[in-house]
Write a protein that binds this DNA or RNA. Structure first.
Lengths: 229, 229
DNA sequence: AAAAAAACAAACAGGACTGATTGTATTTTC
DNA sequence: GAAAATACAATCAGTCCTGTTTGTTTTTTT
């Protein structure tokens, strides 16, 4: 209240000065360090002191930018979210739109797999698991996850326009892709087993093709396998 | 050395006395409390004080049984392993062996899903994620995981004897089941979304049936879909 | 150039955690 | 029943963590 009244009486701070630039750089440095810590030592072992050390700044300086650990974590989640969206998009954008469907499916799966094998995804998973028992973190993540899912839907709409009218088949295909590949990725996080990945991606690509072509048939055949009650 | 020489000169402690019974009960009480903590507050937030409180014993008493947190965690992992094996077996044993294959597949999947939806699995996943950044814990878990996988293989051999000669098709079926359902379970851990589970289990059951029947064909057809290079 | 604001660093304070230690109670052995 | 072993409880000590406070430096505004 009193503070806001005070602020209204002065010019807004110039955002183009060296201080402002330095502040923005500092902020990113700290947040990058936070994500690094999630990946290398785990979310559970991430302390403000460790982040400051990794960022190469003092804890006092960092506390100026993020007055509490909670605020720092919140900013880190948002920062991670932006990076994840960017990372996913960068892999998906590499897929040429003029490929035939089955090759495009396969390329999309490989892009998704590369995304799932990233450090950023590891950090994300660390946060998700921690959020199970931390309501505050969970709230932040839910918002981020919802926005990320929307971004995925948007990317897929562009990359796979032929699926746009497949309704429940599309949902099934998305589910099986998501669960199967994320299950595989989490399994890789837990213990590195590179074997079998290509076989699984091949298999999934074929299944997606089948599911898609089920939409070419009209009538009882739609319910033959995939949508059995 | 010197201690062992000393011990060899006296009778072994009677294991049937009240003290021995109480000690075993105490041990299980502590370990149950530890698993409870993993589930309710997460592995990361589990402290010796919290376990002792949950077990209803003093920290001093607990320290007698487990002289360090490390030993307690090690014992908890082993205890969890035993419980997991027992839980999985209990669900799988309920499946009547005289069911037709497709129904037995479906029943096995539902048993596996029930297992994956258990608190024990949640605890297991907490440990797996924590083990990523804790080499000591990871070592313990690797041993446990390997033994658990063997137990699964043994159970499946009994429940699905008709798969015993399907070689790589069997491996594929096991992989897709594992990754898909664990991916789904982990997704449920992270955010509770009960929808779509039955659809996915239906779909997986059908795929397993297909994969199995690919073994009925000899020649190029084996490589038509699933095992494409 | 002085004043104000922002940024940075260092130290303080209280709480939490683990392992070590000391003391007490219970059970078993002789 | 006394001694020994086991079990249990309470306290101590050192370390780490987070938030608060104080002091210094840098940048911007006046």
């Amino acid at each position: 209240m009193a503070k806001e009244a005070k602020d209204s009486g002065r010019k807004e701070r110039d955002k183009s000065g060296w201080q402002a630039q330095k502040s923005a750089m500092m902020r990113d440095t700290i947040l990058d360090a936070a994500l690094d810590c999630f990946v290398t030592i785990g979310y559970a072992n991430t302390t403000t002191a460790r982040i400051a050390e990794r960022a190469g700044v003092s804890r006092g300086a960092m506390l100026h930018h993020f007055p509490s650990k909670s605020e720092l974590m919140q900013a880190a989640v948002e920062y991670l979210h932006q990076k994840l969206v960017g990372l996913y998009a960068s892999h998906i954008e590499k897929v040429p739109l003029d490929l035939p469907v089955d090759e495009r499916n396969r390329a999309g799966l490989e892009g998704y797999w590369t995304y799932l094998r990233s450090d950023l995804y590891v950090a994300y998973h660390e946060l998700c698991v921690a959020g199970r028992t931390d309501p505050e973190l969970q709230d932040i993540l839910e918002d981020s996850i919802a926005r990320f899912d929307e971004a995925i839907v948007e990317s897929n709409r562009r990359l796979f326009p032929e699926w746009s009218e497949r309704g429940e088949l599309y949902e099934l295909a998305m589910d099986i892709t998501k669960f199967l590949m994320e299950g595989m990725a989490v399994s890789q996080i837990v213990s590195q087993r590179e074997k079998r990945v290509n076989r699984m991606i091949d298999y999934l690509g074929d299944r997606l093709e089948e599911i898609f072509h089920e939409g070419d048939e009209v009538g009882a055949a739609i319910h033959r396998h995939s949508l059995r009650k």
